[in-house]
Amino acid sequence: MEDLSLHILDIVENATSAGATLVCISVEEDAERDILEITVRDNGSGMDAKALNGVRDPFFTSRTTRRVGLGIPLFEAAAREAGGHLWVYSQPGRGTKVKATFEAGHIDRKPLGDMGATLVSLIMGNPEVDFVYESNLKGETTSVDTRSIKKEIKGVTTITDPAVLKLVRDVVNNPEP
């Protein structure tokens, strides 16, 4: 994975395949403490203690659930390389939360990358799922909520309209000061 936005795409795909209807993604940089924190929270099926224990192990794979694989181990490796950590909280029926921290200024910290393209790919591939994206980078905040977009365009066009998605991409990638 070249950048963190690709890891986020991968982790969120886990959430959608776990039956989530709402996924909240947050990216926050705390300049004072030099920490970048990425959180992905979903309301999907969640995992039991056994699956949760194996989630970091690349060789723990349960084909029946397809809930685990290389996604989390790679994300964890990216965090650790940059002086950070990864946590996974989950309970059956209560969704999953993945949190990763990075030393923001660490030389091995991957750049965030094209978050707009990640969000657009997620919406395009899972139009029935709602996504909330919130970022706070260098004091600039961005927020996108597909629930309010869907409400606004209801009856006229759909969330997968390329014009709507392009707008999402622009807002995420070029926040106005």
């Binding site: 600039e140 905040t141 961005t142 927020s143 365009i153 014009a163």
Partner: peptide, 24 residues
């Protein structure tokens, strides 16, 4: 704060009026 503006979405709404939408 960067946010999706309602005006932008309205523009899209205007633009897609009259076109047959098969995306559904």
């Amino acid at each position: 704060m960067a946010k999706l503006r309602v005006e932008d979405l309205k523009k899209i709404k205007e633009a897609s009026k009259g076109t047959v939408n098969l995306r559904d």
